[in-house]
């Protein structure tokens, strides 16, 4: 084939190809313009979400996502599943994490549990017209191993000599930690029960070896012992609402009010939710929440409050320390 024969054919092909390329360019222009718009819209939506007004340091869209996930979990799982348990030989030495509400050692004899919202509370011998009048006493000496002890020494400067430092539960300055004071703390003059450890230990003792999970990511198999919160609630049942229903929530707080947690009543009634008096086969240490702490295998560790001073049944969603700092109120596992 000579060049002259080939040329017109090649021109035809090129002309056809030019049409194909033009069509391609049209598609390309349209789709890229659309893609750019979609990208801008997506970036805008994300920025809007992140810079929305915050609820507990979490922009509202993210906070709502937490709440919707919680609703879905409640609906799907019904909160009844039992966490796996392990042989006691698997139990580990409990790791120390989090000192909020535990800055000073509490004198065990000065401990009482302020229990509020019990049905027919006046019929109990432990009834007190103002549970917040109870005085907790703290060790006078500063803990040497505590890196935060310098700060403690300042806050305890009014404690003189070796006298234990006494604080009236309802009157001392409360909520001195990062999240500030609780909105659910008891008002001075709140009636209720003042329970001693003996009252609590009257309930049947339960032991449990479960995996404790921290939101930070670590987990440990822990040997717990104490009483089931379900038994506790049966012994001291919440006052029913006018319609006969139980209040929906339970609120707990450390004696100094620095750490506080809210729960669904149903979670407290879970058969593995324990009011813990022993860990790893030994009485609770101060740093693990002596004399009474919570274990709930359906919740992350930040919901398993140490050194419980207050338990209050309530129908108002209780304030929660870590929720204020951006974490999920529900925290269900």
């Amino acid at each position: 084939m000579s060049d002259s024969e080939n040329k017109p054919q090649a021109d035809d092909i090129d002309a056809e190809n030019a049409k194909v390329l033009a069509a391609s360019r049209k598609h390309t222009r349209r789709s890229f313009a659309f893609a750019a718009l979609a990208a801008v819209a997506a970036c805008g939506a994300y920025r809007w979400a992140v810079y929305s007004p915050a609820d507990g340091m979490q922009p509202l869209p993210r906070r709502r996502a937490f709440q919707m996930n919680a609703e879905l979990s409640r609906a799907i799982f019904d909160e009844r599943a039992l966490a796996p348990t392990y042989p006691i030989t698997h139990a580990e030495r409990p790791r120390v994490n989090g000192r909020v509400g535990l800055k000073q050692d509490l004198l065990p004899d000065s401990w009482r549990l302020q229990l509020v919202g019990v049905e027919n509370e006046k019929s109990f011998p432990q009834y007190a017209p103002d549970v917040t009048a109870w005085e907790y006493a703290y060790q006078p000496s500063v803990r040497k191993d505590d890196p935060d002890s310098a700060q403690d020494a300042m806050s305890k400067s009014n404690a003189t000599g070796n006298e234990p430092h006494r604080e009236r539960a309802g009157k001392s300055v409360r909520g001195l930690e990062e999240a500030g004071p609780s909105l659910s703390t008891l008002a001075v003059g709140t009636p209720g029960l003042l329970l001693s450890l003996t009252d609590i230990l009257r309930l049947p003792k339960y032991e449990l070896v479960t995996q404790f999970k921290c939101i930070e990511g670590w987990s440990q198999i822990i040997h717990w012992a104490g009483v089931r919160m379900a038994d506790f609630i049966e012994a001291y049942p919440p006052a029913r609402k006018p319609d006969g229903a139980f209040p929906r929530y339970v609120y707990m707080e450390t004696p100094n009010g620095d750490y506080y947690v809210g729960y669904d009543l149903e979670v407290c009634r879970h058969p593995q939710t324990l009011l813990v008096t022993e860990m790893a086969g030994e009485p609770l240490t101060q740093i693990h929440g002596a004399p009474l702490r919570l274990h709930a295998p359906t919740k992350y560790g930040y919901k398993q409050i140490k050194r419980i001073g207050v338990i209050a049944y309530t129908d108002m969603k209780p304030d929660d320390y870590w929720t204020k700092l951006g974490y999920d109120w529900y925290a269900g596992l």
Binding site: E79, A81, Q211, T298, G332
Partner: peptide
């Protein structure tokens, strides 16, 4: 990892919580 209690069969099947992570 998200529901290691409520969906613990799945977690166990994957070798436990830490293996799942």
């Amino acid at each position: 990892i998200y529901k290691p209690t409520q969906a613990h069969y799945l977690t166990t099947l994957l070798g436990g919580y830490e293996w799942a992570r």
